[in-house]
Design a protein around this nucleic acid. Structure first.
Lengths: 139, 139
DNA sequence: TCCCAAGGGTTGGGTTTTCAAACTCGCCCT
DNA sequence: AGGGCGAGTTTGAAAACCCAACCCTTGGGA
């Protein structure tokens, strides 16, 4: 192996793996969609946030939507592709709540009435995906 | 909001959000557990990889296990906490396969016999977690 | 015995990114 | 005219990152 492993995890991280990118998505999912509000919520330098937003828009994860012509104002909304990243954030939050426990967890609700407790299952058999239940490809 | 939002997503990203950290976990889950092999698989600079490994060990995500006394040799194996991050990698891979499609997807198998297709459900009701089915906390 | 290779890093240096603070620009309000 | 908001852009110093080269230990041939 002389060149880095080709891999869609790496490809995905090239889109959302830079510092603050996933926090931008967190804010968007929480309904925070304006530049200044994101700066405050994330605590990122303004120039870095501007660069991340541009990158995410170019990658088709967010879309810039005008909500006022004059003065020109717009907000960042997730595309369909962007919405599909919510699961990643749910899992990151769950992992932090379980293993870092530095704060009272943010409790999200699920339609069923219970607190949201995300679980990764196989879409085919609906059984949980565990390290043991996954088989690696023959190397 | 004068200070960044306190959030376990951000806390988790402080552990695994640096450049290459999730790729280290990918390699570990693929069974690649030695320094030089990781350098080749990931394509990271050796010094950066050394720093990431140290950080992941200190954070309790990986453990350094000797497999030879003389010469002193060891490998990096995931802890229980580390194993729990597999779901994140499955989702990142799935997203890349769906939206980037730059290569034939790496097909992992699931116990049920089908190709692994990860899906995030609510552990309580087993229904898929969608943007619409999750309710935000009252801000 | 001598030399080389493998494993697992460390060191020195130059190149990018980040960062925080200040600045800009258009528009609205008073 | 002055002040403020939203949304960035500029600036210059600090921190990462990248790469090549080097180090050390042990094991294996020639």
């Amino acid at each position: 192996m002389t060149v880095p492993r080709p891999c869609s995890i790496a490809d995905t991280l090239a889109v959302v793996g830079e510092k603050y990118s996933l926090l931008v998505l967190r804010e968007v999912f929480l309904g925070v969609r304006r530049f200044d509000a994101m700066v405050r919520g994330i605590g990122a330098p303004r120039d870095v946030l501007a660069a991340r937003l541009k990158h995410l828009v170019e990658a088709g994860v967010l879309e810039k939507v005008a909500y006022s012509e004059r003065p020109p104002r717009h907000e960042y909304v997730p595309t369909a592709a962007g919405l599909e990243l919510q699961g990643v954030l749910h899992l990151l939050r769950q992992w932090g709540d379980r293993h870092l426990a530095e704060r009272p967890p943010l409790v999200l609700g699920h339609d069923c009435g219970a607190a949201l407790d995300p679980l990764v299952v196989c879409a085919h058999c609906r059984q949980p995906v565990t390290p043991q239940s996954v088989s690696l490809p023959p190397s």
